[in-house]
């Protein structure tokens, strides 16, 4: 039986965590909009105009020799990764009720994000075709 009577003034006043959450929400909207174009053009270029049979070492060398495609792929990587990670973050926030488990999940997510972001960014930025000639069979 619920014996609790009214607590009067309602819930406690918020601690004012709105700023980051507002940014997070806005980032979802902007990155989502950008990803619609970035991802769709990526699919068209990689799977419609070219097929996976045509995409080889030479194709990648040619593509990443242009700063435009380096920036394009870097944007695709960072926005898709951070958009997805932000989604995972709010899911953790919703479903992990224990603060210690939540902290552990946040930490794991942050570490994975950092590793993927650094690995992907390094691949795009420091790509040196000469290092892969042996692998590419040239």
């Amino acid at each position: 039986m619920a014996t609790r009577l009214s607590r009067g003034g309602g819930r406690a006043r918020p601690a004012g965590s709105g700023g980051f959450e507002l940014f997070s929400w806005y980032f979802f909207r902007i990155s989502g909009l950008a990803l619609v174009f970035l991802a769709v053009f990526h699919v068209i270029i990689m799977h419609v105009i070219n097929t996976v049979d045509e995409i080889d070492h030479a194709f990648v060398v040619d593509r990443w020799s242009s700063p435009f495609w380096q920036i394009y792929d870097f944007l695709l990587l960072t926005l898709a990764l951070l958009h997805g990670v932000n989604g995972a973050r709010v899911s953790i926030d919703d479903y992990f009720r224990s603060s210690s488990w939540r902290l552990a999940a946040y930490s794991a997510l942050s570490l994975i994000t950092l590793v993927f972001l650094v690995m992907g960014a390094l691949a795009i930025v420091t790509f040196d075709p000469s290092q892969f000639e042996a692998v590419a069979g040239r």
Binding site: P14, G16, S17, G18, G19, E21, S24, V90, D94
Partner: peptide, 14 residues
């Protein structure tokens, strides 16, 4: 708006 500008205010809405 200040009350709703909180992690458990409007920003908890998905």
């Amino acid at each position: 708006l200040e009350i709703l500008n909180d992690r458990n205010g409007v920003w908890r809405c998905r």
